[in-house]
Design a protein around this nucleic acid. Sequence first.
RNA 1: UCCUCAAUAGCUCAGUCGGUAGAGCAUUCGGCUGUUAACCGAAGGGUCACAGGUUCGAGUCCUGUUUGAGGAGCCA
Length: 456
Amino acid sequence: MQHIDIKEIFENEALINNNVTVCGWVRTARDSKNVAFIELNDGTSLKHLQIVIDKSKGLEYEEMLKVGCAIKVEGQLVPSAQNIVEVNADTLTLLGPAPQDYPLQKKRHTLEFLRTMPHLRLRTNTFNAVFRVRSVMAAAIHEFFQKKNFVYVNTPLITGSDCEGAGEMFQVTTNGYTTEYTNEEDYYTNDFFGTKAGLSVSGQLEGETAAMAMGKIYTFGPSFRAENSNTPRHLAEFWHVEPEVAFAELPDIIELAEEMIKFVIGQVLEKCPNEMDFFDKFFEKGLKDRLNKLISEDFGTITYTEAIELLKKADVDFQYKVEWGCDLQTEHERYISETIFGKAVFVTNYPKEIKSFYMKQNDDGKTVAAVDLLVPGVGEIIGGSEREANYDKLVEAMNIRGMNLDLYGDYLDLRKYGSVPHGGFGLGFERLIMYCTGVSNIRDVVLYPRTVGNVR
RNA sequence: UCCUCAAUAGCUCAGUCGGUAGAGCAUUCGGCUGUUAACCGAAGGGUCACAGGUUCGAGUCCUGUUUGAGGAGCCA
């Protein structure tokens, strides 16, 4: 169907005073005696295109004033004082009518109401802006890593091993509920893979194997967590960015994370000015200032041990007592990133007891080379570490946790043959989108959010 | 999973001390000299989330359930 994107209508000055054809959905219409106005949106632009209907031309137009219908318009593009340009319609075609029970109105709806119709909420300004920003961010992530010679790998979504400590796995099975087996082993050996399988909670372990061959890799794809967590920051299915770098130590990983966050946010500010104005106006006042500040200054850095000292000295009555060895609670993380630093901050070198088996044990014998990136508002958006490269130390850490070493033969081989210092991090893509847009519920930055009890 | 709050017209909400269900927007109809969430007039629209209970009488009080939101835990 030959037509011009509304985005181009607004940007290409050469089109002015020419005849154009545009298609789109009617967002709102205003009718008076001699003239009617339609605001048309085709998804390419946040700004609507005004269509002017001169009633003396005798066009059929009444059905096309209904909010939500799809129309095609041919007419002359003319300058407009208030709207930059507008189209004086010569012909109007109704592509798809919208009956009066169309649920979206031309007024503002609550995000809660829009969540009840994930298919139609996409036709609102908010979701138009969210998914354009999401798309630009995804492209920026690829661009960042590709320019740095990282190889994009796709780790398996179905896995036999659990990335320990990263949450509950969804089980993958072809055994129906009517099948009966006498014991668990019998059940799994008769299943599709002949063993217990699940959806991956992280591609890290497989990513490490790739990094130990290709040097620098990244994954960018879905991860699945069956945790019963009901918060505005958790999804059962989310997109995970997981770079893994050989010949790298913890400071290299921190530098990479900071550089990546700054690049992606810089791209959004540059390529989505209208969307960012929209978010700044309707979702978080001062959003653009906050992001511009973020990309122009260094992130904070503090060790876990230093953070504990500062929290102990803080004149705040925390609900959870601060003691070296405890994991940082949300209230502590907020105090560090929002009150102490007032910006993004890396917290490093956590006690080994509260972190995963694969993290490199530091020489102090008490901590591991882990890092979390805390940002004001959203909390933790990155978790990473230098990995334990020493075979014996890794085996020891796994034994302490009572893990079955037989399931990790491939992983242990990496330390047996040509082991090198390496590390990486995991970024929750949706959390970065929240941080970038000011949208405060993760369900509103995903097309069809999957959460506990919701798989529509 | 735990804690708190909420659920009234299609949407957003009001509803006083327990006494006949309200507004704005939307919809439909009519009007209006180019409007910007247009404006003006009229009409239609209700199982007050669901199930019990207290009461002469419950949208309002009590109990349970469901759904949603926020916080916590877990995490990205």
